[in-house]
Each structure stands twice: as structure tokens, then as C-alpha cells.
């Protein structure tokens, strides 16, 4: 057959071709992901939201940051208000969602909702994002689950979190 002389001539080993192919694919994907990494974020911080100005108003946005200590306000019935900060800017959040049991002052949150004209962020969904720190109780301190779940106190209205 005419195949054998062609085969005998081939100098490049096949595994080299495989290797080049694999390296090529990996490099291409790495570059694609690198570009993606720069343009995609899971949530915006308050300062990014502020700098977007009017463009941010009305759009569906995830706002992430820390709950400013002392800002949590549960006076209005069924409504929770607090400030979210990224240490540069602060945005007031108003939500009727039931906070998860981890919700407390100083903890990280991600709020899904829209920024209103009044500059207050209307949260439809409130998620808590805790840090990677795991601390043991102080000496003699008892961990009481009821105590930990007090974040929802005064907000116990069933089906609150599920807005249409």
C-alpha cells in the first residue's frame, strides 16, 4: 500500500502532537477564563454601586458587604433596615425577607434586589455570607441555638422571605 512509506517518513512522534494539542487547549481556556475573571463579579460592593450612579437604579443587582454595627433597625413592622458597607461607601438596605439565623451586626451579607431612586436598596432576598473563621466558645460560654437564632426575632411572619 502507499501508506507505509508515508508513515516511515514521519518524524514528529504522535505523542508530541497530543502534547501540543493538550497544552494549546489548556492555554486557550486559561486565557479565556482570565478575561472572564476580570469582567465577571458575583456581587457589587456599595462603592461600585455608588460610582455607577443612575445606571444602577432599577436594575437587578446583588449587593455584597458587611452589616454596619448599630445600623440594624427593626422598628417598622415586617421590615428590616440596615447599612451595608465595604469600608469605602455605605448603602442603606430595606428588606421584608426573613434573615437567616446567622444574620447579625458585622456579618457579611449578599442582598439581591434593586436600588431605588431614594438611594435605598430594596432587597428581595437576603443571604448571609459568613467568613472562614471558626471560633470556639469563650471559657465557660454555653452555645445556645435559641440565642443564635435571635436574628429573626420580631420578624416571625411565615412566608415572609418568599415574595412573588
Amino acid at each position: 500500500m502507499s501508506v507505509s512509506p508515508r508513515k516511515a517518513k514521519r518524524r514528529i512522534p504522535r505523542r508530541m502532537i497530543w502534547g501540543v494539542l493538550v497544552v494549546g487547549i489548556v492555554v486557550f481556556l486559561a486565557m479565556a477564563i482570565n478575561r472572564l475573571g476580570r469582567s465577571v463579579v458575583y456581587y457589587w460592593g456599595p462603592s461600585e454601586l455608588r460610582s455607577a450612579g443612575d445606571q444602577a437604579v432599577g436594575a437587578s443587582i446583588r449587593l455584597g458587604g458587611r452589616v454596619v454595627p448599630g445600623s440594624v433597625d427593626k422598628r417598622e413592622k415586617d421590615t428590616l433596615m440596615f447599612d451595608v458597607s465595604d469600608n469605602r461607601s455605605t448603602i442603606r438596605v430595606r428588606t421584608r425577607a426573613t434573615p437567616p439565623q446567622m444574620f447579625r451586626e458585622g456579618i457579611g451579607v449578599v442582598v439581591e434586589g434593586t436600588l431605588g431612586r431614594d438611594g435605598v436598596f430594596d432587597g428581595a432576598r437576603l443571604l448571609v455570607s459568613h467568613g472562614n473563621e471558626y471560633r470556639q466558645p469563650r471559657n465557660g460560654e454555653k452555645i445556645d441555638m435559641r440565642q443564635l437564632m435571635r436574628s429573626t426575632e420580631g420578624l416571625e411572619t411565615p412566608e415572609q422571605g418568599r415574595r412573588p
Binding site: G37, V40, Y42, Y43, S129, N132, Q136
Partner: peptide, 20 residues
């Protein structure tokens, strides 16, 4: 670390208390 996430960062011996 890349995109900022709801999930916490990787934990290490420094972020986890000894008994855990």
C-alpha cells in the same frame, strides 16, 4: 478569591480554632 463569592474563603489552621 477570583470573583468574590457567597462561599467563605478557604479555611486554614489560622482561621480554625484548635479543637476543631
Amino acid at each position: 478569591r477570583l470573583w468574590g463569592s457567597l462561599h467563605q474563603l478557604q479555611s486554614g489552621p489560622r482561621s480554625i480554632a484548635g479543637p476543631f
